[in-house]
Computed example of a mutant assay.
Amino acid sequence: MDSSADRRGVLYPAKLPEFIRVQAPEPLRDRVGWFWMARWNISPGRTSRQELLPFPCMNLDIQRQGVTLSGAARGASHRDLTGTGWVLAAMLLPASTPAFGFDPRALLGTEVSIPGSELHAPVCELMTGAANSESLEAAIKLLAAWLEEKVPHAKSQGLLANQLLELAAGQRDIVNVPQLANMLGISVRSVQRLARDYVGLTPLSIIRRYRLQEAAQRLRENPEITITQIASELEYADHAHFTTDFRQVLGFTPSAYRANSQPLHEALRASRHVAQPPH
């Protein structure tokens, strides 16, 4: 199984419960970014709040309660975990959107139940059994097969919408919609229509989301880099513009986020070091 250590989207990775991200198999990569699984066991009477700046994508989630489709988040969000539980999910690429029959704008920040009893029962049986890599791999294979059957291969517009996200995520010098349109070889209006029909967010908010995900990752993982340097590397005009953008979306300043995340990050590094086997 090919898992990724990428923690963008999670604002405080050190607070995560068991969390695994697995690349989608080759035949599904035009429709699914990756599969992910979280499993938790929180002490009675306690709550673990997971604070997120999610990727601008829909997710198909399987939990004990059923199968749901979650729209892209409007901005920073959180999940409160209690008791014992798990979730197995697929992060869907924009090309998957038409298969589910929802206007993605109507799903922003919400989730809806969808039919999937034939998938839910066998996945629950695997996920509530022994927690091991074999059961997880089997559950992911079931979900992948279900998606392969339910979601048609991407058509040209869906592939273009996928490319829109790929460019916004990977090209740091793209800071506005005309630049994105130029890279895609289409008009600004066409970019706006793609984002509306396949993601539900504006193209500028998609660009901003990826830049701020990268900014948060740098703030918590690279304390030696100044906030001004991060602002410059991410093509912000200056420190003030970066701080305003960060605070508007996440609700706090970059300096406050760095101060809060650093002790957790150091604790995570220490625990990983202790867990290293002798060489």
Score class of each variant (00 low, 15 high):
3 S>R: 12
3 S>F: 07
7 R>T: 12
9 G>I: 04
9 G>R: 08
14 A>Q: 13
16 L>R: 12
17 P>Q: 12
20 I>F: 05
22 V>S: 15
22 V>D: 11
23 Q>L: 14
27 P>F: 11
29 R>D: 05
30 D>E: 07
34 W>T: 01
36 W>I: 06
36 W>S: 04
37 M>T: 06
37 M>W: 07
37 M>N: 12
37 M>I: 03
38 A>R: 15
40 W>S: 00
43 S>W: 04
46 R>K: 15
49 R>M: 05
50 Q>E: 11
51 E>C: 01
63 Q>W: 00
70 S>E: 12
73 A>Q: 09
74 R>G: 00
75 G>Y: 02
76 A>R: 12
78 H>F: 09
80 D>K: 12
82 T>E: 14
83 G>M: 04
84 T>K: 12
86 W>A: 10
87 V>W: 00
88 L>I: 07
88 L>W: 10
90 A>K: 14
90 A>G: 14
91 M>T: 15
91 M>D: 11
92 L>C: 05
92 L>M: 06
93 L>M: 13
93 L>V: 05
94 P>N: 13
96 S>H: 06
96 S>C: 13
100 F>Q: 05
105 R>D: 13
107 L>A: 12
109 G>E: 07
111 E>K: 15
114 I>M: 09
116 G>A: 11
117 S>N: 12
117 S>Y: 01
120 H>C: 01
125 E>K: 15
126 L>H: 08
127 M>R: 08
128 T>W: 09
130 A>R: 15
130 A>I: 07
131 A>E: 03
131 A>D: 06
137 E>T: 10
138 A>C: 11
142 L>Q: 13
142 L>M: 09
144 A>G: 08
146 W>P: 03
149 E>P: 02
150 K>D: 05
158 G>T: 07
158 G>R: 13
161 A>Q: 07
164 L>E: 02
166 E>M: 10
167 L>H: 04
167 L>N: 00
168 A>P: 05
170 G>A: 01
171 Q>E: 00
172 R>F: 04
172 R>M: 08
174 I>H: 00
175 V>C: 02
177 V>P: 00
177 V>W: 10
177 V>C: 03
177 V>L: 08
178 P>E: 10
179 Q>S: 04
179 Q>G: 04
180 L>R: 01
181 A>E: 13
182 N>I: 00
183 M>E: 05
184 L>Q: 07
186 I>S: 08
186 I>Y: 10
188 V>C: 12
189 R>P: 04
190 S>H: 14
195 A>L: 09
198 Y>Q: 14
201 L>A: 02
201 L>M: 14
202 T>L: 09
206 I>R: 08
207 I>P: 00
208 R>N: 04
209 R>D: 00
210 Y>V: 08
210 Y>D: 05
211 R>T: 02
212 L>S: 11
213 Q>K: 13
213 Q>N: 12
215 A>P: 01
218 R>V: 06
221 E>N: 04
224 E>G: 03
226 T>I: 06
226 T>L: 13
228 T>K: 15
228 T>V: 09
229 Q>E: 04
229 Q>M: 08
230 I>S: 07
231 A>Y: 00
234 L>G: 02
237 A>T: 06
237 A>E: 04
239 H>R: 13
239 H>T: 01
243 T>A: 05
244 T>W: 01
246 F>L: 14
247 R>Q: 15
248 Q>F: 09
248 Q>R: 15
250 L>R: 05
252 F>H: 09
256 A>C: 09
262 Q>C: 02
264 L>I: 00
265 H>V: 06
271 S>W: 14
273 H>Q: 15
275 A>C: 14
279 H>P: 04
